[in-house]
Each structure stands twice: as structure tokens, then as C-alpha cells.
């Protein structure tokens, strides 16, 4: 019994046809631009940090034979074969997105709210004479943007799945540490014989102790009561992402996306953090130019 077969029985031939849609492949030497329009939100776990509404999310990609730019990742692949690609990669550390509205990760997200709300009220239930347990992020020393550079290994398990391993170090001496990511993602067709596609991504981010303490630690630079000083260890933040898409035409795809990241104890115990997770949800349509 045939359990799974391609829909159409193609004629026997050795030379395959080029096709318009190439899952997980991208045409080289061409700029790829798309805009997602819809409604969504990215939660901000910081005290005094507003959730960020999502309405318009652009995507920009360019791949050469070796060089590539993919939504903020700037890289050069110096080893490529069918199973593996090893690249040097550089990008702006995305952790600062929670601290600054004008992080590149947020800059194209059109909303009326800031990542850090300067009009937010003071922490409730804190008596003036008492030391609050939490610190509003607008009252601490501003965190700087870090530029991370390092190595990335992509291991292609099949045409629709891969494992990505990334180890990065900040090159502008902001936190003087490392971060890493291990991620597995797989595309699949939940309903056979329809164009409906889905994708699941699971992985974890690892932050070195110095990175955790730079962004989430509290010290004398933050000009708060010394009783609130906070230093901690490294962090391991597991996450899961689910995406589903239904193409309406060559240009338009309806889709929804949701992601959940659990914050490590070393982050969620910080006085500037009030949530134990970070959630992003979006539903809308994507237009490819």
C-alpha cells in the first residue's frame, strides 16, 4: 500500500525543472523583500517596559555565493556542502530590544508605544520610605548596544529541517562575554494535498554570566539603593515557536506565528524583570515583493 506519494506522477526524466517555490532555498544575488501586515504583540519582561504591538514587520534578505544578509544577520559562509554550512556571522545583540525602543529589531515595528515607557507609573504598593523590590527600567543606567560576532553551523537534516548552532562574542566590549544558540526547526504539511504549511522551532539561548550581569545585573552604575544590587550566573532560556501559513497567491500568504521563551532564573530573579517569559504572537498576511 502506498502511504505517501507525490500528487502528480511526473514523467521520467533526469533533469529536474526549476520551480518557483523552493522550500528553505533562496535565489542568490537577489534582494528579497517582504512585509507582514497584521496584528500581534511582543511582551516585554522588564519592569516598566511596555509590550510592543506589532502591525508591520518587514523582512529583508540577500544571499550571495558566500556572503549573506538575512534580517539582521550579516554573514560569510566559508564552507558549504549539502549537509553543512559553516559561517562567520555578525549581528546586533537582540537582548537590547527590551531596553530600547530604537533597537533595529523594533525599529520597523510601527506602534504608538515604546519598549520602555517613560510615562509608566511608579511601582505600586511601594511605600516611599521602603526600598522597592523591583526597579523600573527607566531609572537605571542605559544599556548599550552590543555587536556580536562568531561562528554559526547549519546542519541540514533534510530539505525541510535543520539544526543551527551559534556561538557569538561581543566585539565592541559592551558585556565582554559570549552567547550561544542551539535550534532545530522543521517544516511540515499538516494537511496533505493542500498548500497549508507549518513550522516548529525548538531551541535554547545561552548567555554567559557577564552578558546576564551586563543586561540584568544591578550595580553602582545604576544609581539605586545598594540593597538592590544584583549579580547572577549564566542563563539558559529554552523556547518554542510555531508558525502556520496558507499561500493565497504568489505574493500573499496568510499566516500566524506564536513563540514562547522561558527566562532562566538568573534573569527572572533580577529586580528589573517582572515576567518569567517572553511571548510573541502575530496573525496577518505576508506580501512578497
Amino acid at each position: 500500500m502506498i502511504l505517501s506519494l507525490p500528487n502528480a506522477l511526473a514523467e521520467t526524466k533526469i533533469i529536474g525543472d526549476a520551480i518557483e517555490q523552493k522550500e528553505n532555498y533562496i535565489a542568490i544575488d537577489k534582494i528579497h523583500f517582504s512585509i507582514a501586515l497584521g496584528a500581534g504583540v511582543k511582551t516585554n519582561p522588564l519592569v516598566g517596559g511596555d509590550n510592543i504591538p506589532l502591525f508591520i514587520v518587514p523582512s529583508l534578505k540577500y544571499y550571495g555565493e558566500n556572503f549573506y544578509f538575512d534580517n539582521g544577520d550579516l554573514g560569510y559562509s566559508f564552507f558549504q556542502n549539502e549537509q553543512l554550512t559553516l559561517s562567520a556571522v555578525s549581528r546586533i545583540n537582540s537582548e537590547n530590544a527590551y531596553f530600547s525602543r530604537w533597537h533595529p529589531k523594533n525599529i520597523f515595528i510601527f506602534s504608538s508605544a515604546s519598549g520602555v515607557n517613560v510615562d509608566s507609573e511608579q511601582i505600586p504598593d511601594a511605600e516611599p520610605s521602603e526600598i522597592p523590590e523591583r526597579i523600573d527600567v527607566k531609572n537605571i543606567h542605559a544599556r548599550r548596544w552590543a555587536i556580536d560576532t562568531g561562528l554559526q553551523l547549519n546542519w541540514f537534516l533534510s530539505s525541510r529541517s535543520q539544526v543551527k548552532i551559534q556561538v557569538l562574542h561581543d566585539i565592541n566590549g559592551v558585556y565582554d562575554g559570549f552567547n550561544g544558540r542551539v535550534e532545530y526547526f522543521r517544516q511540515f504539511s499538516p494537511i496533505k494535498s493542500t498548500p497549508f504549511t507549518a513550522q516548529i522551532t525548538i531551541g535554547f539561548d545561552w548567555f554567559s554570566q557577564s552578558m546576564v550581569n551586563y543586561y540584568y545585573g544591578i550595580n553602582n552604575k545604576d544609581n539605586v539603593d545598594s540593597a538592590l544590587y544584583y549579580q547572577s550566573g549564566s542563563a539558559l532560556n529554552p523556547y518554542i515557536k510555531l508558525h502556520a501559513g496558507y499561500p493565497l497567491s504568489k505574493q500573499w500568504t496568510l499566516f500566524s506565528a506564536i513563540s514562547y521563551k522561558a527566562l532562566a532564573a538568573s534573569i527572572k530573579d533580577s529586580p528589573i524583570v517582572e515576567a518569567s517569559n517572553n511571548i510573541t504572537g502575530f496573525i496577518g498576511a505576508n506580501y512578497v515583493f
Partner: peptide, 14 residues
């Protein structure tokens, strides 16, 4: 080659 594998997933922005 005219195509290469993408190194980020299509929906990694979300």
C-alpha cells in the same frame, strides 16, 4: 548553483 540553503528560518523574526 543559483540557489542556496537559507541559514535562518522564514519566520525567525517572530
Amino acid at each position: 548553483k543559483k540557489y542556496r540553503r537559507r541559514l535562518r528560518s522564514d519566520w525567525s523574526l517572530f
